[in-house]
Design a protein around this nucleic acid. Structure first.
Lengths: 315, 315
DNA sequence: GGAAACAATCGCTTTTCACGATGGCGCCGG
DNA sequence: CCGGCGCCATCGTGAAAAGCGATTGTTTCC
């Protein structure tokens, strides 16, 4: 008795439902067509297709200049159809917002980056995308993992399927109490047996200390802490000197501290590399993509601050 | 930097979202295609079309035998897409239920029909469609209106844009106290000046009484009430006779009351017509359509009960 | 009786859909 | 290291459909 019923969900077309809603609101196929940018005949066929899908007429056409009227079946379809269209509109809006850079981004970071680079990155990102949701997490440095992070700042290689971009060569410099060393550039050998305060043996630290050993210099590590302020306080107090990456020194503003002096090492210890990592082969959200760009810019500017040889314009 | 964003809501196709969901669940385009009854290349193109719609990739294709992985954008689309598909499925199910005859039907009725015809109609309708929601309303007989009713039983013409089907010719018969009239068929003239109890002057009643007048018989209406039981009690009490449609007599089971006798009138008063009305030009719900069919059958059976000349089979 | 408003229908062109075949790419086992 | 293998993208093709303009048919109103 009834015609064939709805074969599959996907036989429905949002276009048809939109046409139906427009017809209901306008009261005629022609006006609905005008509103939707279609022809009357097209709307007529769209409604016909919809009626084929649902297995019965959704409108009664009284003929003549009288407005079409919805059938019981049509009312049912319209009721659900409006919800469907609303959900579709919500999807479209969410996609637009996503493409405009809203949404969430999870960034992993570590100490010096948190202080020097990230604030600028976050600031610029938020300026560009006021609606975005930026989440930072400063992981324990022992076991840095991408996990569910979108981006991870780290100064060494990382396990897993990861890609990265190098942001910055961060050279190791010697921070000593003013007067300890007279020359700006201190030979590595001078540190043999000298008292040093240093970071715990994580991240790039082992590699750096090996470089000392290879150079025949065996400083005495008299104190280890991850706290940069504490470290520098110890240096000021004469407990010893510190070999720290420039970024950490800069972060603590040690360069403008009268009681301290920053020396270069001769020969230089190969710098640690500050990198920004992400899971390999993954498409970034616009937000993440932009964050990478900004981080590269910020790091580049930072390199210029340290060594203002070549000027680089930026918009 | 980003491609063009979603033009219109209707650019989305449920088919594409379904394909995407299948790919996510199956982990590969090919298996998703198999599940959906498509070819791998078709699914590939569907996903490509979806990606064009949302302005970016929804999957990362790592290449090789590794399963595709969803992108942040894809996750967003999928999340909304699933809801959309669920709503579409809900629509389809609602339509199916509607076509199967579930849903609501509003029926207007009046006294005798309520007693004799409707119970059978309702019973059969409910048997066929256990999920249906049947609502009856017995209107005041003075101003019968279709209003928002799907169907209306009534014994006269109706204002407004209405179609109807005749269910039954309901002839007027004379109910008298046993012994009042000896012959089965009573000439109209015998009622001139005779005491009658009758219905109030609504519905078909005025037409019927005019028929008396035209025949030169002017009975005395000694009591008017719409209550059939009351009317018959008065007849039993000898207050007078009653001229009632057969349906009302049958409804009150007056035929098997020893104290009463049902006579035909000679010549017969043209019967009232029991009709079933609905608003003109409106497509019926399957439930309403079926209700009409059943009502016609029931009325036909009822006519056979009264005059069992021709047998009519029914399943 | 004719004009006006409206939807259905008919050809027609253009676009899309789905398919099968083919090609490229990354993994894996010999 | 070098073919298989599994996977997705692409291409070409035929069928289907979307959309359009013009026309027809129907009803109402003047």
């Amino acid at each position: 008795m009834t015609g064939s019923t709805l074969g599959a969900v996907t036989d429905l077309e949002l276009r048809h439902l939109a046409a139906m809603a427009a017809v209901v609101e306008e009261g005629s196929f022609g006006r609905a067509a005008a509103r939707l940018g279609y022809t009357q005949s097209t709307v007529s066929q769209q409604i016909a297709a919809l009626e084929r899908s649902v297995g019965g007429p959704v409108f009664d056409r009284p003929g003549g200049p009288r407005p079409v009227r919805i059938t019981p079946l049509g009312a049912l379809v319209l009721e659900h159809g409006r919800e469907l269209l609303a959900k579709a509109a919500a999807l479209a809006e969410a996609v637009d917002r996503f493409q405009a850079g809203e949404g969430r981004i999870d960034i992993g970071t570590f100490q010096s980056v948190s202080t020097v680079i990230l604030p600028v990155v976050v600031r610029r990102l938020r300026d560009e995308h006021p609606g975005c949701d930026i989440r930072l997490s400063e992981e324990e440095p022992e076991a840095p993992q991408i996990g569910d992070l979108d981006l991870l700042f780290y100064d060494g290689p990382l396990d897993g399927d990861v890609e990265h971009v190098k942001l910055l060569d961060d050279p190791y410099l010697l921070v000593a109490r003013r007067g300890t060393f007279s020359e700006h550039s201190v030979p590595l050998g001078r540190l043999d047996g000298a008292p040093l305060v240093a970071w715990p043996s994580t991240c790039d630290q082992p590699r750096m200390e090996e470089a000392f050993t290879r150079a025949g210099a065996n400083p005495k590590i008299v104190f280890r802490t991850a706290g940069n302020e504490t470290l520098l306080s110890m240096v000021r107090a004469g407990m010893g000197s510190a070999v720290l990456p420039w970024l950490a020194i800069h972060a603590a503003d040690a360069e403008s501290d009268d009681r301290l002096r920053v020396h270069e090492l001769r020969p230089a210890i190969s710098p640690r590399e500050i990198c920004l990592h992400w899971r390999a082969g993954r498409t970034h959200s616009p937000l993440a993509a932009r964050a990478i760009e900004i981080a590269v810019e910020v790091a580049s500017d930072l390199a210029d601050v340290r060594l203002p040889r070549r000027r680089r314009g930026r918009s």
